[in-house]
Design a protein around this nucleic acid. Structure first.
Length: 578
RNA sequence: CGGGGCGUGGCGCAGUAUGGCUAGCGCGCCUGCUUUGGGUGCAGGAGGUCCCCGGUUCGAGUCCGGGCGCCCCGACCA
């Protein structure tokens, strides 16, 4: 491709809207352009990268027997009604001329299940692994970081259909390995972590994370066994604390704490520390009220509460109900004197704590010297609090968790029968009995990968693309476009490289060399061939974007040398397993 | 949804407090000359509903009211 006839709108100055490195570079290098909040144009260079990512994902899925199809972006709302997802607040909704409601596809479990329930009815038709690469629409509350979190984005989504859980486990593991291969080929170093399923639901699921400061997710990782989990999921071990002896503890007493509601206010007023305090959070799990207790300096993980009760949804209780149940304004709830039928769960860390302070269920009052077992029924113990850096690992004896930021680039789920049961997708087994199909789903953010790649591979001058996903493999820079000798050599090399099947971007523009060098570095094409004054001695310069150490090469050997470099760059990105 | 910030040629910004003539600057763009190994220099030029609507005023980019859009932090998140 000749730069003089291509479309690369690079910018010298960074648009004020961009904060994140990858966002700034993608805008400056002319890869993307914002159309609206979270809505982007992929300009020619950006689109080439997207297509390379797609191709890698295709190859790796096809390799394990995946079959590509393409589903509509317009999803009839009644399909989502079947699974109860039509009310999600992130849906873009619209109506056709007959007022029939539609949703723009935010993920495609319902569509694929609809297809499968109509065409798959026998165990002989499975296993089946279908996938697509398509635009997804989600009306995110807060789009962020360019294409990191967009409202319209490109996603790969695969769906597996099997007759039993062993087969699901097999295909899940196959995808799990295929994902690692995909990310390695893109030059993305990922870690895999346990995760929450969110609105997808189903059974076990894992996320692929790129460790990067710009990441949105908090990830905890064990320094010893490597166990990793999204902070919203991360298990903590039961510290198995021995309860203190209650005999010597003074009787429970109510003290006035005027206007002291928050942990900070109460501890300041009573001149104590937050770890002497027990927070009582009133929640609803599947709509049913429940009280959750965590130490004053800890944070409740609502998902853990939900899982402890085998629930499917969790929310904070509204203020009105709280006041009804505690007979006090919000901020003074405590476990003592709550209705007998209200379940109370406590974080197992609290087992080692007696003689604590807690809300009195009365306005402007707290209780001190409170003991469970003595002053209220012993609660049910569970892992309820949010994990944080420094906590012990739940999976090994002596590991300590550390915290990193991560960009979620993939998420794989064992769905089980959640969708097949809701939508009546059944098959007949060898004995003629009907069963719900066992499903899995597997998502990968294609456009988010573009941002993640830049987030990982850049320096002060611009992007440094791994060759596998670079918009072009080689940039050919004609230093002085007025110099006939240089131009002749560059034209000849361009011709040869193109003939030989290299993806070459030939900067033949009538610009000063500085402009071309700056642009080449910004755009990040991995191999640079500079045709400059060296042509007088019959030489051109070959160098890598990554280190820019120049190498003088005779013109007639340039292509062979570039070929070697190209091969070694691809070689470095070959997948290590599977 | 809560908090903060912003909206002026393609990009980055000044001007707004204290209303006043043809709305400025840098980059980019066009023309000519110049320069040609890291965003050259000089000269000339084009390009603007000052986010929108309404109001106050002799006069509004600037003041008042309402709305819209965008960014960041948090909540949320597939």
């Amino acid at each position: 491709m000749r730069a003089s006839r291509y479309f690369v709108p690079t910018l010298r100055e960074v648009p004020a809207e961009a904060e994140l490195t990858s966002h700034r570079l993608l805008l400056r290098a002319g890869f993307i352009r914002k159309e609206s909040a979270g809505v982007y144009v992929y300009l020619p260079l950006g689109w080439r990268v997207i297509r390379k990512i797609e191709q890698i994902v295709r190859e790796e899925t096809d390799r394990i027997g995946g079959i590509e199809l393409f589903m509509p972006a317009l999803v009839p709302q009644e399909l989502l009604d079947e699974t109860g997802r039509s009310g999600l607040d992130i849906l873009f909704k619209l109506r056709d001329r007959h007022q029939r409601p539609f949703t723009l596809g935010f993920t495609h479990e319902e569509i694929i299940t609809d297809i499968v329930r109509n065409f798959v009815s026998s165990y002989r038709q499975m296993p089946l692994l279908l996938y697509q690469i398509q635009t997804k629409f989600r009306d995110e509350p807060r789009p962020r970081g360019g294409v990191i979190r967009a409202r319209e984005f490109i996603m790969y989504d695969a769906y597996s259909f099997d007759t039993d859980h062993e087969a699901l486990e097999r295909v899940y593991q196959a995808l799990r390995r295929a994902y690692f291969r995909m990310f390695e080929r893109m030059g993305l170093p990922t870690i895999i972590v346990d995760a929450e399923a969110g609105a997808i639901g189903g059974g076990s699921n894992e996320e692929y994370m790129i460790v990067a400061d710009g990441g949105e997710d908090k990830v905890l990782q064990c320094d010893s066994c490597g166990y990793g989990a999204n902070a919203e999921r991360c298990e903590l071990p039961d510290p198995a604390l021995t309860p203190p002896v209650v005999d010597a503890i003074p009787p429970m007493e109510q003290v006035a704490t005027p206007n002291a509601r928050t942990v900070e206010e109460v501890t300041a007023f009573l001149n104590t520390t937050a770890d002497r305090l027990v927070k009582t959070l009133l929640m609803r799990v599947d709509g049913a009220p429940v009280a959750a207790l965590v130490r004053g300096d800890r944070e409740l993980n609502p998902y853990k509460l939900m899982h402890a009760l085998d629930g499917e949804s969790v929310e904070m209780m509204d203020a009105e109900t709280i006041e009804q149940i505690t007979k006090a304004p919000v901020g003074f709830a405590g476990p003592v004197g709550l209705p007998a039928d209200l379940p109370i769960l406590a974080d197992h860390e609290l087992r080692g704590l007696q003689d604590f302070i807690t809300g009195a269920n009365a306005e402007d009052a707290h209780l001190v010297h409170v003991c469970w077992g003595r002053d209220f029924t012993e609660p049910r113990w569970a892992d309820l609090r949010v994990a944080q850096a420094g906590d012990r690992c739940a999976r090994c004896a002596d590991g300590i968790l550390r915290e990193v930021r991560g960009i979620e680039v993939g998420h794989i789920f064992q769905l089980g029968t959640k969708y097949s049961e809701a939508m009546g997708a059944q098959f007949t087994d060898g004995e003629g009995n009907l069963h719900p199909i066992i499903m899995g789903c597997y998502g990968l953010g294609v456009s988010r990968c573009l941002a993640a790649i830049v987030e990982v591979h850049h320096d002060k001058d611009g992007i440094r693309f791994p060759i596998s996903v670079a918009p072009f493999e080689v940039v050919l820079i004609l230093v002085n476009s007025e110099d006939e000798a240089q131009r002749a050599v560059a034209e000849r090399l361009y011709e040869q490289f193109s003939q030989a099947g290299f993806e070459v971007f030939y900067d033949d523009r009538d610009e000063r060399s500085g402009v071309k060098f700056k642009d080449a570095d910004l755009i990040g094409i991995p191999i640079q061939v500079v045709v400059g004054r060296g042509v007088q001695e019959g030489q051109v310069e070959v160098r890598l974007r990554a280190d820019k150490t120049p190498e003088q090469v005779p013109i007639e050997e340039a292509m062979a040398r570039v070929g070697e470099l190209r091969q070694s760059l691809y070689h470095a990105l070959r997948p290590s397993e599977g």
